[in-house]
Computed example of a mutant assay.
Amino acid sequence: MREVIFDTETTGLDPKTGDRMVEIGCVEMIGRVETGRTFHAYFNPERDMPVEAEKVHGLSSAFLATKPRFADTADELLAFLGDAPLVAHNAGFDFGFLNNELSLCGRAPIDLGRMVDTVAIARKKHPGAKLSLDALCTRYGIDRSHRVKHGALLDAELLAQVYVELTGGRQIGLELTADADSAHAASDAPWYRPVANRPRREPRPHAASPEERARWEAFLAAEIKEAVWTR
């Protein structure tokens, strides 16, 4: 199954009060494995950048002034998202900003039925624990040493690793049913090689030869006195 893990950076906390999305990063996964395809873009919010927000992600008004508006990149973004489930950390926040931008440029909102919230998953799996992306990276041993400030694509890449751990770990795709090959092949996953294409090996001999059995019986007779199986 194809899924898209994404993250956004914004000018603030609430699109209803005029805050805008300034960055989005998306990572494609098929069968819980990253394919290497990503989408990343900065946007000119056409407004000032509050100091508090800039401290979080480091994106200044001067830097963003040279970037395209969201409307100029919407088609490319929507093509990448396709109809896949969309995974985000505290997903209601990211969906709120994404759908606000789509509304501002006259596009239909993304159905909330596609939303997968990793905070909700983590809350069920680790009740009472810290649920921030940093905390979950620490819990699962995911290296985030290069994360100095928030960045949409970097955070999406980290979240992709966290999502795998939250949903079963690296062996989530292990299947032992007769239908496993056809199910994986249908996904067109680049990492999958059907069993039928693997080289066939002849079965290895596993029974002892008559000479080996004779030596073994002689050893038992000489070394083990009054063996229980001879009674």
Rank of each mutant, 00 (worst) to 15 (best):
R2N: 09
T8K: 07
L13Y: 02
L13G: 04
M21R: 06
V22E: 01
M29C: 06
I30S: 02
G31R: 02
H40W: 11
F43I: 04
N44K: 04
P45D: 09
D48I: 06
V51F: 14
A53L: 05
K55G: 07
V56K: 11
V56G: 11
H57M: 08
G58K: 07
S60G: 04
S61M: 09
S61G: 08
A62Y: 02
R69T: 03
A71Q: 07
A74K: 11
D75Q: 12
E76C: 06
L77W: 06
G82T: 07
A84Q: 05
N90L: 01
F93Y: 10
D94P: 00
L98F: 03
N99I: 09
C105H: 06
C105L: 07
D111P: 06
D111S: 14
V116G: 11
D117Y: 00
D117F: 01
T118E: 04
V119S: 04
R123F: 09
R123K: 11
R123A: 11
A135V: 08
G141Q: 12
L154H: 00
L154R: 02
D155A: 06
Q161D: 12
Y163D: 00
G168R: 12
G169V: 02
Q171L: 15
G173V: 08
L176F: 04
A178T: 02
D179G: 12
S182R: 07
A183S: 05
A183T: 07
P190E: 09
R201Q: 10
P203K: 13
H206T: 13
E211Y: 15
E211R: 14
E211N: 13
E212A: 15
E212D: 14
W216V: 15
E217H: 13
A218N: 14
F219N: 11
L220H: 14
K225G: 12
W229T: 15
